Simulated assay, not measured.
Amino acid sequence: MPPNLFDQWASAAPATAPVTAPDGPTGEEAPAASPAPEHGPATPAIVRRALQELLKNGLLELSAKPHLFRQIATDTARANALLEPLDLRVLVDDHRGLAYVAVAASYQSENTGEDEDDWTHPLVRRQRLTLEQSLLLAILRREFLQREQEGGLGVPVQLAIDSLLPQLGIYLGHTGSDMQERKRLLTLLEHLRGHGVVSDVDAQERITIRPMIVHLANPENLQALLQRLRELASNPEGGA
């Protein structure tokens, strides 16, 4: 069975040069040095599990995987050493119980032209959002931060679907059909769910906003988006 990828990274060591000794009285060469072990100590199983889960989903939440999250949070230096050959790193938000993968600051893309627009890293696909998805993301992020200020960090933030419909309608306009507007909202939420920022809609017609939403988008960009949408809403003919 081939060695585990993480074990290879952890145990990588420079090869030692062969050792020779002067010829003895009989002219015989000294015995060859014993070969060094092919692999050093294995990466602990819990570290491998935590990193594999982190790479699979892009994030780890304390509420969902407490044991694996704590392993990453307490051994971040080891995790980053293992991710370094991939030009990735792990960031930990202890206050919200979140660890997530990010591209290392030292990474330099070799792509040019059209490829550079589609890829920021060979292992990380750039996630593009439509205007409507970006708008809903901004609304949800604002709601999340407001609830955090009221209830404190780490408190689950839940919203009723019906409470989002009027806010979305302010910027996107009303279609005149409640069913159509609700379907539009559910479609947008389903797409954002794939980015790890919201949960499924539960039986009470609510969603849980997940802490990753704080780190997904730049606050300045979201504020500029909202300002632009307000301008378009107040002066539809002036927008282009």
Rank of each mutant, 00 (worst) to 15 (best):
L5S: 10
F6H: 06
A10D: 05
A12R: 12
A15C: 02
P18M: 11
D23W: 09
T26D: 15
T26Y: 14
G27N: 14
A30N: 06
E38W: 10
G40Q: 03
A42K: 14
T43A: 04
I46K: 02
V47S: 07
V47N: 05
R48T: 14
L55S: 04
G58N: 02
L62T: 07
K65C: 11
F69Q: 07
R70G: 00
R70L: 13
R70A: 10
D75F: 12
A77Q: 09
A77V: 05
A77F: 00
R78N: 05
R78E: 11
A79S: 04
A79N: 00
N80Q: 07
E84S: 07
V90F: 02
L91C: 08
D93E: 09
D93T: 09
H95S: 15
A99W: 05
A104P: 06
E110W: 03
N111Y: 03
N111I: 00
T112G: 09
D118V: 09
H121R: 01
P122I: 07
V124I: 15
R125A: 14
R128F: 12
T130K: 05
L131Y: 13
E132T: 13
Q133P: 01
S134P: 00
S134K: 03
Q149K: 09
G152K: 06
G152H: 11
G154I: 10
G154K: 09
I161Q: 10
D162Q: 09
D162Y: 01
Q167M: 03
Q167C: 00
I170E: 12
H174Q: 03
G176K: 04
S177F: 06
D178N: 08
E181P: 01
L188Q: 03
G194S: 14
G196T: 01
G196W: 01
D200N: 14
V201T: 13
V201I: 15
D202R: 09
D202E: 07
A203M: 10
A203S: 14
I207P: 08
T208N: 10
I209T: 10
I209M: 13
R210S: 04
P211N: 02
P211Y: 01
P211L: 01
P211M: 01
L216E: 03
L216D: 00
A217Q: 12
N221T: 10
L225K: 02
L225Y: 05
L226M: 12
R228M: 02
E231W: 04
L232I: 14
